[in-house]
Design a protein around this nucleic acid. Structure first.
Lengths: 321, 321
DNA sequence: GTTGCCTTAGCAATCGATTTCTGACATTCT
DNA sequence: AGAATGTCAGAAATCGATTGCTAAGGCAAC
């Protein structure tokens, strides 16, 4: 491997000068030209390990997610990656399976790899961010709220669920169920609260039997929907509070062909739906924009922005042309 | 941040001894105990940047994929991550969008970050792996074939497409179209070849107008399906050579309700299908197993396995219980 | 009792970059 | 002309771990 010393020798300068040229510091023109030529000739690219050691931080951002197989999070990842890429950072994707221990392990790695920053959709209700924060690393929490004083990008989940429920009510449904995620995730709790609120506003009963806590995956939605259909009387409509739960609900309904005029509301997108979705009330979330916003905020922090913690919603997507 | 010297001081030993304890080398028992206690008390974890610099390789594996939003590749990523995790490696996910320039950039980064190895589903027909290979890094190519002498995990794509086409023929279809991906990807070309072969075997004509090259995404499948339905006469059935193209095909058909008894074969899985899939001929690919196999092979290489390049198919998934 | 082997702890070199510090030289001002 | 100031290249220190080498100590064999 060619090292900086090789380049320096070939260009007839010191390693300090090579480093300065590569890092955009002021250097005499003729020397800079010689260095750049030597770099090209030797096809030199600096060892990032050594650079990180000396600089005491790397150009890598950790993206810690509960479920890398959920299209919501892959879109989010995509948004983060696009911004990071432009800003010269690479993204490490870390999958926690919503298991706090795995999450903690990844946070430790982020710390001991001296990563520049972390974007995290927390599995734990209170992830151990202290070490990273005290080291001055950038942190942005996405999707789910945490009590810590850090930048956060979240949706107005209560409002979204409330509006989605009102849509179902407007369609004439009265007995509306809600399938939400684990009670420990703030998104699941907030969206259930929104459903409850809309039902109360409309004077409808939000029976306990109509609220099902499932896991936030397809099988969770299927199991929940099956138990709802077994109720006596069954509901007329259902609000699925996340995309995969929605898929499970639709899959189950597709098998009970009797359930044709069953009302379905889904909070989230269905990029890989194979049926028509025109008769479903979809609340798109734009996870990519959430990722873009989070990554922009993170880059600002990494570059030294010193401001009180910001809690924002994702910037809306560009209007379709 | 606590450094190894702090631990050494507290335990009353040299840094060399601390390093040896942490790396499982032989050390006198009482010293080892003292070191471990000091590590616990100080909550010390070694700086991986410094370690990588000295060791000349890190504990990070790059996973270079053309489309991180495709569930096929996220499942594959999941498989790679699970194995890597167990073996003590972290995984960096790199998205190339099937753009060779992005791919090359990531390969350069993998090299200059001294990553332990790379699993790559190549965007380029001949990615520049030379630098990594000469540095002795582990490399495993997945999904798409390359001419280089490296470990590769690929499907028997010709055979898969051939069998899937035969299924459609067995269902009584004769005018069977094929929607495949960009001609530059080996998977798209091989699967198209399999379709052609099965058609020829059955004495059916594989007209040029029945073979459509699309992109390997949902919109590609939709556009292709629309053009096929516009043919005169239109085909009776279609083989979609990847999962997202299949989604596009099904979406389009769902809107042309006339096309009820249209035959559909899809090579790939539809984890997020929202309709019944019982009347579709699905060829599951088990990308997670592909990831598991690739990662296991990569870990073997990283650990020093010196054997001729291996070209294998993924191990079959465990039988459902 | 002496020699020689073996184990193992510590010193110091090392990985490859960045950056502080120093001094050479040029320029400006009096 | 001489002093003061500024610019910039290079020498060397530095980041924090791992590891080759050295030497000390323990033990066995003669």
């Amino acid at each position: 491997m060619t090292r900086i010393a090789d380049v320096a020798r070939r260009a007839g300068v010191s390693t300090a000068t090579v480093s300065r040229v590569l890092n955009g510091k002021q250097v005499r023109d003729d020397l800079a030209v010689a260095v750049r030529q030597a770099v090209d000739e030797l096809d030199y690219s600096p060892d990032r390990t050594a650079r990180s050691l000396r600089r005491r931080h790397s150009d890598v951002i950790a993206l810690v997610l509960p479920d890398i197989e959920n299209p919501f999070f892959t879109s989010l990842a995509r948004g983060v990656e696009d911004v990071a890429q432009d800003a010269g950072y690479s993204v490490v994707l870390c999958n926690t399976d919503d298991v706090p221990a795995k999450e903690e392990r990844y946070l430790t790695i982020a710390e001991s790899e001296n990563m520049a920053g972390v974007v995290i959709a927390p599995a734990s209700t209170s992830p151990r961010l202290g070490a990273l924060m005290s080291r001055g690393r950038g942190i942005v929490v996405v999707d789910r709220r945490v009590p810590d004083a850090v930048d956060q990008v979240t949706f107005d989940n209560v409002g979204l669920a409330c509006r989605a429920t009102r849509d179902l009510i407007a369609d004439g449904h009265t007995r509306i169920a809600c399938v939400t995620g684990p009670a420990t995730t703030s998104t699941a709790a907030d969206r259930a609260a929104g459903w409850r609120q809309a039902m109360a506003e409309a004077g409808l009963t939000a029976d306990d039997e109509l609220l099902v806590h499932a896991n936030f995956r397809v099988d969770g939605g299927q199991a929940a929907m099956q138990s709802l259909l077994a109720l006596d009387p069954p509901p007329h409509a259902v609000l699925a509070t996340n995309n995969l739960v929605g898929v499970g609900v639709l899959k189950t309904l597709a098998e009970h062909s009797a359930a044709d005029q069953f009302g379905v509301g889904i909070i989230g997108d269905l990029p890989f739906a194979t049926s028509r979705t025109t008769d479903i009330s979809l609340t798109p979330l734009h996870p990519r924009e959430m990722g873009l916003t989070a990554a922009r905020m993170l880059v600002e922090r990494i570059r030294g922005l010193d401001a009180p913690p910001r809690i924002v919603q994702p910037e809306p997507p560009p209007a379709p042309q």
